[in-house]
């Protein structure tokens, strides 16, 4: 088992394996997102109170879920990289940052586009919105820190420490709507009793969420491969690959 993992973590094996995963994950992600968008925009009925504006949830909610999920992956990979000094974990961590930042940005902007017609405001400084904005700054901070240090391995360690410290923000975002009075409504799908959303509205949401997750798998591997090549540019297998074209 350990030997298998070690082989997996070797740059060359990872490069070949990820090259085979990316098309599958990417195509399934594209299909799921298209189906989810069609179902959410066309098939799902309008909400009894919010009318058609509620269709924004099919972008907003998966993006918000992914913004938290990607952060946990980034911090976890960063911790593994710090403790075991595994290069590949460092690469996965830093490759996750721009994707997570994108999801966070999408969650904030689509939330704003939903808030204007429904709440009556683009933005309020309530606990949920503020903590999600802090998450965006954490992602940007990790990226900036990584970019500011010349040596990539030192940069990875510094970025990982920032990412790990920022993990405390994750439960704050998740529970903010329960701990404090917020303008943002409480949880719908993850409520312990049954979710308070009609099934024909829930299905496209879950499909979209799965599509976003596979999209993350595909794009993080794409970024990781480039980052890996960049770091290994002087190694033999990369040279040979360039030679082959």
């Amino acid at each position: 088992m350990m030997r298998f993992l070690h082989k997996l973590a070797s740059p060359k094996t990872f490069y070949a394996l990820s090259g085979r995963i990316i098309p599958w994950a990417g195509v399934s992600a594209l299909l799921l997102i298209l189906v989810g968008a069609y179902w959410g925009l066309v098939e799902a009925p309008a909400d009894y109170q919010q009318g058609d504006s509620f269709r924004i949830i099919y972008v907003h909610v998966p993006a918000a879920w992914m913004s938290l999920f990607v952060y946990v992956v980034m911090a976890g990979a960063g911790a593994i990289g710090l403790i075991w000094r595994i290069k590949l974990a460092e690469i996965i961590a830093i490759s996750s940052a721009p994707i997570g930042a994108s999801f966070t940005f999408l969650a904030l902007v689509t939330g704003s586009l939903w808030g204007k017609p429904m709440w009556g405001t683009w933005w309020v400084w309530d606990a949920r919105l503020t903590s999600e904005l802090i998450l965006l700054f954490l992602y940007l901070g990790v990226m900036a820190l990584y970019g500011a240090v010349e040596d990539k391995r030192t940069a990875s360690r510094a970025a990982a420490i920032l990412a790990i410290v920022g993990v405390v923000n994750i439960p704050i975002i998740h529970y903010s709507v329960e701990w404090w009075n917020t303008l943002h409504q409480g949880p719908t799908v993850t409520k312990l009793d049954k979710p308070s959303i009609a099934p024909e509205m829930l299905w496209p949401l879950l499909i979209m969420a799965l599509g976003f997750k596979l999209y993350y798998v595909a794009t993080v591997l794409m970024r990781a491969r480039v980052e890996l090549l960049e770091r290994e540019r002087n190694s033999r297998w990369v040279q040979e690959m360039v030679e082959a074209g």
């Binding site: 009925p45 309008a46 909400d47 009894y48 109170q49 919010q50 509620f54 949830i57 429904m118 709440w119 009556g120 405001t121 309020v124 303008l183 409504q185 409480g186 949880p187 719908t188 409520k191 308070s196 959303i197 009609a198 024909e200 509205m201």
Partner: peptide, 18 residues
């Protein structure tokens, strides 16, 4: 001087609400 609506966490089609 400002009124904001707080929507709840329930989503359903109008017929179900009725």
């Amino acid at each position: 001087d400002e009124v904001l609506a707080k929507h709840d966490e329930n989503y359903m089609p109008p017929e179900v609400a009725d």
